[in-house]
Each structure stands twice: as structure tokens, then as C-alpha cells.
């Protein structure tokens, strides 16, 4: 090793230009594909597929995303919560909305339920939301491009 080093030139000039070109192209690509949307997604949920599930035109007003897992637990703010306990969290949401002088009925509850979960759980979740004064619901599905 020592011999090799001493036999080489004193300073090797590596042409950095192509690497920097490529690197800047990569940066440009990543900057353009950067997604600023605050869409809540979770790997624990496998949404049902639908051919008509086209993305909404605009963002939902005051969205509250509730994700229902197959075991009947609801992912709220990233944490799994039992279905019977979700009412307390929704009460907090309601209080925050009222303190910001917004009506709970103006909020959109986005239901991201797993396709394999029970319909009864989805209905129970909607019922809890209704009891807290939320009225607008959307059922989220994944766009099925296969047909």
C-alpha cells in the first residue's frame, strides 16, 4: 500500500462535473415530486378498492381522519384507540372546533376503514361521531385502475 501511494502522482484531479450534474438532477427530481399534502395514510389500513374512487377536487373542510383497523380499533392521531374510547377524543376535537368558533357539523369526518373490517364497526364509529355532532362523512377507498 505504501509503495503504491508513493508511486502515484502527487495530486489526482477527479473531474467532479458529471457527478454534480447528476446530483443536481436528482435533487430537482425530488424537489418536484415533493408532496406537501397532509393526507393521512397508514400502512396498517388496506383500503377497499373502487373504480369510482376519484380524488376529491379540493381539500375537505376541517377534516378529521379516523382509520378503522380489522381488529375494530381506530387509529386516531397515529395511535390505536378502542372504539368505545374514541368518543373522548372526538369530544376534544369538538371543543377545539367550538373554541375556534367553528361548528362541529362543518367538519368532514374521513373514514378510512380497512376493507376486511366489519361493517358494524364502521357504523358504530359513525354513530359515535354523530352523537358528538359531526354530520359530514366520507368513506375513503383506493382507486382501482384494473378495469
Amino acid at each position: 500500500m505504501a509503495r503504491k501511494k508513493s508511486s502515484g502522482p502527487e495530486q489526482t484531479d477527479i473531474d467532479m462535473t458529471p457527478m454534480i450534474d447528476v446530483t443536481f438532477q436528482l435533487i430537482t427530481f425530488f424537489v418536484f415530486t415533493l408532496n406537501f399534502s397532509e393526507a393521512v395514510t397508514d400502512d396498517r389500513i388496506q383500503l377497499p378498492m373502487s373504480q369510482l374512487a376519484k380524488p376529491a377536487e379540493g381539500p375537505a373542510t376541517n377534516p378529521i381522519t379516523l382509520q378503522l383497523m380489522t381488529n375494530g380499533k381506530v387509529i386516531y392521531a397515529g395511535e390505536p384507540v378502542a372504539l368505545q374510547d374514541i368518543g373522548g377524543y372526538l369530544e376534544n376535537e369538538k371543543r377545539v372546533m367550538i373554541s375556534a368558533s367553528k361548528e362541529p357539523s362543518s367538519a368532514t369526518v374521513i373514514v378510512r376503514a380497512d376493507g376486511r373490517s366489519n361493517t358494524g364497526d364502521v357504523q358504530d364509529l359513525i354513530k359515535v361521531c354523530q352523537e358528538k355532532g359531526f354530520e359530514r362523512f366520507v368513506l375513503r377507498a383506493e382507486y382501482d385502475e384494473s378495469r
Binding site: I20, T23, F30, V31, L34, A56, V138, R140, E142
Partner: peptide, 29 residues
């Protein structure tokens, strides 16, 4: 180059693959 690689690393880690999702409105007052 250090900074540029850090930028690349940041963008790669924050890259989200967008799955097109859609909504169905339901009327439940």
C-alpha cells in the same frame, strides 16, 4: 457535495408514494 448529498438524503427519506384515493360522501345527519 456534503450539503448536496444531505439534501438528496432528505428528499429521498421524505418521498411519499402517492396512492390515488377517493371519497364517497354519505349523508348521515
Amino acid at each position: 457535495i456534503d450539503v448536496v448529498f444531505q439534501l438528496i438524503t432528505f428528499f429521498m427519506l421524505t418521498l411519499k408514494t402517492v396512492i390515488s384515493e377517493g371519497d364517497f360522501d354519505i349523508r348521515m345527519p
